[in-house]
């Protein structure tokens, strides 16, 4: 298990949503840049545009990252060996925050499969 210092452990409570934010910026920025470069006009196999592919890729990547993080926190919480109430608390908040961030990702970004990008 990776040993973390107290400040780094504290930061875990926000990590799920930090990944969500990065995904948000990447999707929003990526969409704008893609439109600017005309990627929505470039059609790949099966009527899927380069734009759509990029967005879906970013979506999958961020979803996987937050899921992994939440799992990691879950395992840490389960196997923390009850070092202290404080760290247990942090792991639980971090895990629940990760789950909330997964929900937020599904809720906000699943739209990449559907809406008109440009």
């Amino acid at each position: 298990m990776i040993a973390l210092k107290q400040p780094a452990t504290t930061l875990l409570v926000a990590t799920g949503f930090i990944i969500w934010s990065v995904a948000f910026i990447a999707l929003y920025g990526g969409n704008a840049v893609g439109c600017r470069l005309g990627w929505s006009e470039i059609e790949l196999a099966g009527g899927i545009t380069l734009q759509r592919l990029m967005l879906v890729g970013l979506y999958a990547l961020s979803l996987a990252a937050i899921l992994l993080f939440s799992l990691w926190m879950h395992r840490r919480y389960r196997s923390a060996g009850r070092t202290s109430e404080a760290t247990d608390f942090i792991y639980r908040v971090a895990r629940d925050g990760g789950v909330a961030a997964v929900a937020a990702t599904l809720f906000c970004f699943t739209l990449v499969f559907w809406l008109s990008p440009c």
Partner: peptide, 10 residues
């Protein structure tokens, strides 16, 4: 673009 609006709306 509507997709971008969708992110913010959601």
């Amino acid at each position: 673009p509507h997709l971008a609006l969708g992110f913010f709306s959601a």
